[in-house]
């Protein structure tokens, strides 16, 4: 089984988000870029599975749709153990364009299982995995919190709105994962870091893909009103306030 992990590159989650003065795009100066945390968990789990003797996983690759400045972050994925990486060299405007570029690579390189994080910490589209599945006409599963692989099937746990299902699925398929799939992302070993340079990071040219949704401007959240402090000895005061002033 060949696994492809989709990876977006996002500002470190501790970053204060600022926009350029025209409010049309993110102010990127001073931002530290990281692998989207959910995608990193997806990669972690994919690597764990490959290391199990009977998993039948022969390859774990990562893919990013974006420009060259993401390469150092992609290198980290190689340093922690991905076998190879693809980068489609285009600044995609939305989820549809990303899914379209992905589908081309998945078809050409014959991947069996595509894993994506259920959300991306930047524009929170959470749509790429399902769009990709639809474009490929593959089955897909979202909100996955556990994944195991056997020779030609995977066992997954899916958290739906009111229930948790255990599913055995036969790839090809796309799954989007949430927290719980793996504990902590891996720290690359020094040997892994040095070895990453000799692993393939293939830059691919984009195919024509049209999307019809794009961000045109941004806005900072409004200042919240000041916190009203309540005497710890008078909890009933808080209860009154919640009932009368906050209508709850």
């Amino acid at each position: 089984m060949k696994i492809l992990v989709c990876m977006s590159v996002v500002p470190d989650t501790t970053t204060q988000i600022r926009f350029k003065p025209d409010m049309n795009s993110l102010e990127t100066s001073g931002i530290q870029w990281i692998i989207n945390p959910w995608d990193e968990l997806a990669l972690t789990r994919a690597l764990e599975i490959r290391e199990q003797p009977d998993s039948g996983v022969t390859q774990v690759s990562v893919i990013h749709i974006g420009l060259k400045d993401a390469d150092p972050v992609i290198q980290k994925a190689l340093a922690v153990g991905a076998d190879s990486a693809y980068r489609v060299n285009v600044a995609a405007a939305g989820a549809m364009e990303v899914a379209c570029q992905l589908s081309e690579v998945v078809k050409k390189e014959h991947f069996d299982l595509v894993i994506a994080g259920h959300d991306s910490a930047d524009y929170n589209g959470s749509a790429v995995g399902e769009m990709l599945a639809e474009l490929l006409d593959w089955i897909s599963f979202s909100s996955i919190c556990s994944l195991a692989a056997a020779k030609d099937s995977i066992t997954i746990e899916r958290e739906m709105d009111t229930r948790t299902e255990t599913i055995i699925a036969h790839p090809p398929c796309v799954i989007t994962i949430q927290k719980g799939i793996a504990k902590d992302p891996r720290i690359p070993s020094l040997r892994g870091i040095m070895g990453a340079r000799s692993k393939p990071l293939l830059q691919l040219e984009p195919i024509p893909c049209a999307g019809s949704a794009a961000f045109v401007k941004f806005e900072n959240p409004a200042q919240r009103s000041k916190c009203r402090m309540i005497d710890p000895a008078k909890p009933e005061e808080l209860v009154e306030l919640l009932r009368n002033e906050a209508n709850v």
């Binding site: 150092p72 290198q75 980290k76 340093a79 720290i187 690359p188 870091i193 040095m194 990453a196 340079r197």
Partner: peptide, 17 residues
């Protein structure tokens, strides 16, 4: 270099985690 930054980050992650 990118490798040096990655080593620095690996040590930082280990320490903080």
């Amino acid at each position: 270099t990118e490798e040096q930054k990655m080593i620095q980050q690996a040590a930082r992650d280990y320490a903080n985690r």
